[in-house]
Every structure is written in C-alpha cells, then in structure tokens.
C-alpha cells in the first residue's frame, strides 16, 4: 500500500509526525540555548496539532482535551518556564560548541533506522501506517536520550527529557487514540511537577557548583579519594 492511498487526514498526520522527527534533529544540532527552547516549543505545538487532528478524524472528543493540555504544557508553559530560568541565570546568550556534530547527527540517523528495525515485526498488525508512527515516536524517544548524552548543559538535558515525553505522547495518541483520560491527566501532572522540580534544581545546582555544566557534577564516583 502506498502512502498516497491513505485518507487525507492520515497523510497530514504523517507529515506532521515527520516534522516532529525533524525538530528532534534540529534540537540535536542546535548550539544556541534560546533557539533550542523555541524548537522544543515548536515540537510540542506539532504534537498538539497531531492530537487535535486525530481527535477530529477519529471523532474522539477526549483527545481535544489532551491536545489542549499538550499545547498548554509543552508548547507554552514549560518553554516559558525554561526561558525565564535561562534569563534568570544569565545564560540567554549562551552558545555551546558541539563536540562531534557530524557524528552525533549520524548517530541520530542510525537510531531512526534502529527504531524501524525494532518495529519491523509488527507489520501484519493493522496497517503499515501504525508501524511508521510507532517507529517515529520511538525515534523521537531515542533522539531525546542521545541529546541528553551528547550535551553537557543541564538545560539541554531537561529539553532532551521533555522531548522524550513528547515522543511517548505521540506514540500513545497515534497508535491507540490516546490513553484513558485518568492516565493522561496523571502523566500531565507528573510532567508539570517534573518541570517545576527542574526549576528548583537549576537554582540548587547553580548554588552548589556555580555553573550549569553537567560535567562538573562529578563528586560522586567509585574512585574514592584515600582520605
């Protein structure tokens, strides 16, 4: 079955999902902190748009609520909080030099291939369309993890963490038309609390090591000094 034979809404979902994946790569290559936060906000907006589209095409009104929740949390509130924090700790002009930009992006591409390989056995379930979306959401999750590993900045780690959540949410919405409402509210609550805690931690970490560089969090290790 070619993708062109799908109904128009599903094609639109595909295009949007591809754009979500694209924003993941943008996050991976972005060196300016503020631009990263904006890219992350766009990713949240795209996921919210997909949710709204699914709500409309599959006539599932409770998805409108989760779309609104995603838009409010991932595209507006959390980016705004991050932005405020970054300004508060005067990192808004911060640019980071990437250690291995080409290798990181190639690694990212490898992760996408890996995701497609993982979901390969699911093909005879329902349609090929689902398989694609599961692969894309898994890729977004794995790219988020790569982002957290590749970056040394604590704010970037948070963005990676939250973009993992985006990938999970994308998977839940597109494969199963969203989780039951209680669960979705619970997950949204957890994400909100996590975002607040991140804010608390920025300040605690800055207070204790006077930097937001994750490389300097190295006091605890198995190599204990001989006192």
């Amino acid at each position: 079955m070619t993708l062109l034979a799908l109904p128009l809404q599903e094609q639109a979902v595909f295009v949007l999902a591809a754009m979500v994946l694209f924003t993941s790569f943008l996050l991976l290559a972005q060196t300016r902190l503020v631009t990263s936060i904006h890219t992350f906000a766009w990713q949240g907006g795209l996921v919210a748009a997909i949710t709204a589209l699914m709500a409309w095409s599959s006539d599932a009104p409770h998805l409108y609520l989760s779309a609104a929740l995603t838009l409010g949390l991932k595209a507006l509130l959390i980016p705004w909080m991050l932005h405020r924090l970054v300004r508060r700790v005067e990192l808004d002009r911060h640019t980071e030099s990437l250690a291995w930009p080409a290798a990181t992006l190639l690694g990212g591409a490898g992760l996408v291939l890996f995701s497609y390989w993982v979901v390969l056995p699911i093909e005879h379930l329902e349609l090929a369309a689902t398989r694609n979306i599961v692969a894309i959401s898994l890729s977004v999750v794995l790219l988020g993890m790569l982002l957290m590993v590749a970056r040394r900045q604590i704010v970037q780690e948070v963005i990676g963490f939250m973009s993992i959540e985006n990938g999970l949410f994308l998977g839940a919405v597109t494969t199963a038309h969203g989780m039951p409402l209680v669960v979705e509210l619970g997950v949204a609550f957890d994400v909100l609390v996590a975002a607040i805690l991140f804010g608390v931690f920025f300040l605690q970490i800055r207070e204790s090591i006077e930097s937001l560089d994750a490389d300097r969090l190295d006091r605890l290790s198995e190599r204990e000094p001989e006192a």
Binding site: M148, F161, L197, Q204, E207, S208, L217, R219, L220
Partner: peptide
C-alpha cells in the same frame, strides 16, 4: 554539593 548531584543523577 554531593547531595544535589546525587539527586540530579537520580532524577535524570
């Protein structure tokens, strides 16, 4: 500093 680092590691 150690406890903040431990908590951050735990969290992430």
């Amino acid at each position: 500093p150690e406890s903040v680092e431990a908590a951050w590691k735990y969290f992430i």
